[in-house]
Design a binder for these strands. Sequence first.
DNA 1: TATAAGTTTTAGACGCGGCTAAATCCGGTA
DNA 2: TACCGGATTTAGCCGCGTCTAAAACTTATA
Lengths: 247, 247
Amino acid sequence: MLSDVMEDYLKSIYALQQEDGGPVATSAIAEYLEVTSPTVTSMVEKLEDRGLVEREKYKGVELTQEGETVALEVLRHHRLLESYLTEHLDYSWSEVHEEADTLEHHISEEFERRVAEVLDDPTVDPHGDPIPSADLTPPEDDTTTPLSDHDAGDLLVVSRVSDRDEEELRYLADAGIAPGTRLEVADVAPFGMVTVRFADDGERDQSLPENVARSIRVRPADDDSDPDSDSESDGGDGEGNSEEIEA
Amino acid sequence: MLSDVMEDYLKSIYALQQEDGGPVATSAIAEYLEVTSPTVTSMVEKLEDRGLVEREKYKGVELTQEGETVALEVLRHHRLLESYLTEHLDYSWSEVHEEADTLEHHISEEFERRVAEVLDDPTVDPHGDPIPSADLTPPEDDTTTPLSDHDAGDLLVVSRVSDRDEEELRYLADAGIAPGTRLEVADVAPFGMVTVRFADDGERDQSLPENVARSIRVRPADDDSDPDSDSESDGGDGEGNSEEIEA
DNA sequence: TATAAGTTTTAGACGCGGCTAAATCCGGTA
DNA sequence: TACCGGATTTAGCCGCGTCTAAAACTTATA
Ligand SMILES: [Mn+2]
Ligand SMILES: [Mn+2]
Ligand SMILES: [Mn+2]
Ligand SMILES: [Mn+2]
């Protein structure tokens, strides 16, 4: 059995690996989990003993196949829980992460199955993040790009937002930005400030600080041109459960 | 903050105090939690330091006001969860206890509130156990009696069944015995074997071993004589969510 | 009332997951 | 190529929750 702490390390390493590709530095994990470097060193040694990570001293750490599977399992729990809390217990977008972050370690496989069933096997969570499938096969690579990488004139659909900052999520809900929202980049100002125009509401512009623009991930709007199903515009109460993501 | 282990100790002490009245012995807690006596001793010392129990060395331990409140809080979580899992996630009677026993320590107050709300503030869990109110005032004393204490001819309503033995719960579900079931004691045989007749089905008798009869708690059937609302007789699939309990 | 049996506590250990301080390594710069 | 600064690991500590073995206490019995 793995402790919830070990699960958190594996989840973190997975997330950091997704971000940057290669091996993950001790200090990166330490920062992510808010612990000290020696703590990380001793933990990754333990994970290495259990065959969950591969490690080269002074270099960095990578998940093994088995370690990745555990990470995906925990991620599946997390994202199913977020979806469930949003849809069945009236949680808002910004509240779910913290609750799911604890519960993900404590639900049974039975619970996971039943939640997936009543949600009808969702593939995306409320923040647009893909939910690993029940068989825990690695999802294909993320093809979305940060909003901050785009230029004036680009037509985009919001694909994912970071779920780790509650403050920021409230801000986005307020601004009416959620997975599925169609935007045009109106302007990119110094210091990375991005101004976007809402495709569904030509009236309205919204300026976003660089750090926010960096955490919003988008894909091009051009391809699947039909404005599709439930275009529940916005409304004060940032709900808005997303559409498909696949490119 | 209290650890989940501390919460379990407080919950155990509460349960044992309910059973027997007075101070609770180290060995009783040890047996209940399946740990050794020295482990219990060191834990209750810690709980004493935190003002959650009172203790007299070599004598026993009792909950303080504060300790009782914590126990009731955990019990509320447990029983709300059992109710929720039964009603909204299609768990059966016999499956809920284990899941709730873990989750009770890991849900937030917000989660508790929302679950209570969608369940419309239930007062009894699927096993007939009273759910402590949100303000955590101590519930009045249990006036039910074990089925095993009764004699042939007694007319009874099942009030509570023990939730800790999954095996036994499956057995009872199978037999069609649940909170709310009306029974007449047909016979008490040697070794405490009790045979009951179903009030709603004069045809059918059921013999129950002493240990099972002891864990079924009942109250007299005579007083509120109207056969009342949803008398969903039985059916193979032990669901049957109970009625009121108050005497 | 002395003693034996059973319970409880004390003593000492261990793995976990954290920390700080000190030693070591690595990569870049002079 | 020698050195320096930063990252990493080593060393050693702590509190938690558990254990076993041994000592101390309580209670029942002779
Ligand atoms: Mn799972
Ligand atoms: Mn999410
Ligand atoms: Mn609570
Ligand atoms: Mn119960």
